[in-house]
Design a protein around this nucleic acid. Structure first.
Lengths: 131, 131
DNA sequence: ATATTTGCCTATTGACATAGTAGGTAGTTA
DNA sequence: TAACTACCTACTATGTCAATAGGCAAATAT
């Protein structure tokens, strides 16, 4: 299940893509347009900056802007930054310890297949497809 | 993310399908074979009985058995019983209150599409495919 | 009848993630 | 120097998940 953080992050990215100004857009404006608590969006924006998906500049005239063109953001990448894990089962999480039952597990192939299906869907979909 | 409850439920169903006896299989045996706490499996088995996926009989000689043939259990149905929600976003949950932003939501079509993809995958896959 | 087996019911615990709030610090421009 | 803006740390409330514990009820074998 995609959390609020992930969904909000997507809305911030969409909002920024729509402003398509070369300048920086303050979070206050985004929060008002999207009707989301600015305080909460700060957490989200910070993580997007850490992951280099956004550029942030402090001070008067500062704010956030996209660091790439909208066509170059896979939706899945944005969600991966925000979500704790996008894997369908915990044993397929990135960095999970190898399951001792893996070789005999009757369901692992199914989970892998589903995981791939979701991954492909979300990485083929681009931010520009949501504008 | 599929929880332990969902994964364990699937293992119980697979185990029962493999015993293919007409009699009832006590949970104690399943718990030992699958190496899962019997107490915890009781919770899971109860829910499967409530949903009519299993038949349970108390007393000596009692236990559980499948109420259909393995080919007639979609994996998705088993998981739906155990998981709180299988929807990718909360606004698509069964019985969710209608989101006021639905008409203008830029991401809803994508979530619906992904939701359908997952649903189809899990309902086309049958318990018999996991044996 | 009675003991044994087995499912079922209620309650509780600890751990963890999520959603959100609050207040303050530091950087940048006018 | 004033105003604005991102960023940092900490806290709280709520909910879900995984698992345990003890006892009751049903059904059978002896």
């Amino acid at each position: 299940m995609i959390s609020s953080r992930g969904r909000y992050a997507l809305r911030v990215m969409i909002d920024l893509a729509r402003q398509n100004s070369d300048g920086y857009v303050p979070l206050k404006e985004i929060a008002e347009r999207q009707n989301i608590s600015k305080k909460y969006l700060e957490i989200i924006a910070k993580e997007l900056v850490n992951a280099k998906l956004l550029k942030g500049v402090s001070g008067k005239g500062g704010g956030y802007k996209l660091s790439r063109k909208p066509e170059e953001y896979p939706v899945g990448e944005i969600l991966d930054v925000m979500e704790n894990s996008m894997a369908v089962v915990s044993c397929l999480e990135n960095g999970a310890e190898a399951c001792p039952r893996a070789a005999e597990c009757d369901t692992l192939p199914m989970w892998s297949e589903l995981n791939q299906l979701i991954h492909d869907f979300l990485y083929n979909k681009k931010l520009s497809d949501l504008l």
